[in-house]
Every structure is written in C-alpha cells, then in structure tokens.
C-alpha cells in the first residue's frame, strides 16, 4: 500500500494523539485523578498505527493491558476513552471496564485485556467469524513479549494455522515482561516459533513506522486472500514503567532517556518525512497542537464528568437474566 500525503498526515496525527494521550494520563495519574492500574503505550506508537492503518471496521483487533494505543489506532473515541480511564459516566465502557478493559466492539476493538496472553484465542474466534461469514475481514492479536510465552499464544497460533484463519499475531517486544527482560524470558526466536507453526514470521523494527506498515500490509493481504495466519515480531521501546508508579529499578539509570533520544518512533517518522520532503514541519506542528488540544479537552471534560450512578452497578451483566 502506497502512502500518500493524507495517509502520512493521518499516521502522524494518530501517533501524536496516542503520545499526547499517554503523557497526559501519566501526569494525571501522578496527580491522583485516575483510579486503578494504568499501563502506558508511549514509545510503541508506530506498531499500533502501522498495523491498524490497514484496517477498517470489518476487521477486529484484540489488545493487551497496554491497550490505549491500539484503541486510538482502531478509531475509538478519544474523549470517551479518557472518561473511561477516569471511571466516569459516558466512558467508552460506561466506567465499568477502565484502562485494562477498554473496548469498542462497534469499531472492531475487542478489548484491552487484563490477562496476559488473553487475546490470541479470542482473535482466532473473530477470524473464524470473518471466514464463516465471508466478510474478507482479518483479526489481529496484539501481545507482548510476556504474552508470547503464554500457552494461549502457542495454542492460538496452532489453531489459526490448522484452521487457516485470517489472523495475525503481533508480538510487541518492548524488552520487558513486567520487570523481567525478554532477553532472558523469551527462549529462542519468535520468528522461528512462527515457522514452527507453519506460518510466516517477520522481525520488524518498531521504531520505524514504515517498516511496520509494510510488514503488516503483507501479512494482512495474505490473510485476506485466504492464505492463513502470520506473525510479526516488533522490537520496540517502552518509555514508561510496566504500570504507572513503577519505579523501574530494573532498568539502567539512563536507559529511558537514551531510548527517548535515540529510538523514538515519532522523531524517526518526522525526520524521515521532512528529509524526504513528503511533509513540511509546519503541517506536523499544526497536528501536534491539535492533538495536544484534543487531549487537554478530553482530560478536562473527563474530570468534569459525573461518576456512574450506583444503580449502574447492577446493569450490563447479562443481556437477559
């Protein structure tokens, strides 16, 4: 898929929106306004956007506990997301899911997931629906280097191959499963694991939006043609802790600062499109300001929103009971 100017502007806007969203959540969490557990996606934006640029509402993704970026890339409403994270009425999930379960099935976003390795089996099901119904849709499981080691991922990859499903497994390897380095916990090579299950596996530099976009495009096209599942092993960087409040004592002292300076996928994208003369700095700056304003607005609206009424506790458990 050739990226035209509009595509590039869109990619930049989505990545900037994710970055602004996560940085604001980081600040608000530290200020005590956000309840519960929050896991931030800053630094990994090129993966979510590079993959989801290929998708529409007929396609389904399932995410991880680090799911805000996937949500935004899949077209979920940013303000409703922010209300959700603040636990307010009118949240994307009515304040019942929170950061870890943020979802919008109408946009093909089958949920962030509080269970590491939760997504791959679910995505097999979404891919089966596309196959049985003949919609031409694909389903994509995002999963971290931690999730890659779950049995559910192994089982899901095997089933997707056996059933020849239009499914793609995107292993977002940010170097850490919680506090444990993937260099230690991920035995062998995920790309070879894919080969072991009879599907193509590709390693991608997650700092490079264009590399992700191209590799994802190939895997998705193959799935749409009925040729079965693929795996992408995306190497990328996490700019915040495992969860908000994580002191990151397991990381090298200057590690995050160095990564932000050297391996920021946004900086890399900006440099590339401006150097190649595809976009000019002013256009990008304008988007930056709009993204920041949008998130500012989302935060202030979320803070002003009411909490759910107590009666909401009892609704939405069943369709009928």
């Amino acid at each position: 898929m050739q990226l035209n100017r509009d595509d590039l502007l869109r990619a930049w806007r989505e990545m900037r929106t994710i970055r602004a969203f996560e940085e604001h959540v980081h600040t608000e969490f530290a200020a005590g306004g956000i309840p519960g557990f929050v896991h931030l996606y800053a630094g990994e934006e090129a993966s979510a956007v590079g993959v989801c640029m290929h998708l529409s509402d007929r396609d389904v993704i399932a995410s991880t506990h680090r799911g805000h970026g996937h949500c935004i890339a899949k077209g979920c409403d940013v303000k409703a997301m922010m209300r959700e994270i603040f636990g307010r009425a009118g949240g994307l999930c009515a304040g019942k899911g929170g950061s870890m379960h943020i979802a919008d099935i109408s946009r093909g976003m089958l949920g962030a997931n509080g269970i590491v390795g939760g997504a791959p089996p679910l995505v097999c099901g979404a891919a089966l629906t596309a196959k049985v119904r003949g919609t031409g849709g694909v389903a994509i499981a995002f999963c971290g280097d931690g999730g890659a080691n779950q049995g559910t991922t192994a089982e899901g990859m095997n089933l997707a191959s056996v059933w020849k499903l239009p499914a793609i497994f995107v292993i977002e390897d940010n170097g850490y499963a919680e506090s444990t380095a993937s260099a230690w916990s991920l035995a062998g090579d995920p790309v070879k694991r894919a080969e072991g299950y009879g599907m193509p596996g590709t390693r991608v530099d997650g700092r490079d939006f264009f590399a992700v976009h191209e590799a994802a495009g190939e895997a998705i096209e193959r799935a749409r043609k009925g040729e079965g599942p693929s795996l992408l092993h995306v190497k990328l960087e996490r700019f915040f802790g495992h969860f908000e409040g994580d002191a990151m004592t397991y990381r090298a002292a200057d590690e995050v600062a160095r990564l932000r300076a050297e391996r920021d996928c946004l900086a890399s994208f900006r440099r590339r499109v401006t150097e190649a003369g595809l976009l000019d700095g002013a256009a990008l700056d304008a988007i930056d300001r709009e993204a920041a304003a949008l998130i500012d607005e989302a935060v202030s609206e979320a803070k002003a929103a009411a909490f759910p009424r107590p009666a909401e506790l009892l609704t939405d458990v069943y369709v009928s009971y």
Binding site: V60, A62, I105, L110, G118, P120, P121, L122, V123, C124, G125, A126, A127, L128, T129, A130, V132, R133, A139, G151, T152, E155, G156, N158, L159, V162, W163
Partner: peptide, 22 residues
C-alpha cells in the same frame, strides 16, 4: 469444526466468534 487438543484456543475462539457475530 474439529479442533486440535487445545481447549484454551478453541474455547477462547468460541468466545471471540460469539462477540463478533457467530
């Protein structure tokens, strides 16, 4: 649909399929 012996995969697939229209 016959499945491999993979209860996590196919029970989860049933959940994912149900949530998306089957």
């Amino acid at each position: 649909l016959d499945t491999p012996i993979s209860e996590s995969a196919f029970i989860g697939a049933a959940a994912g399929a149900a949530a998306t229209g089957l």
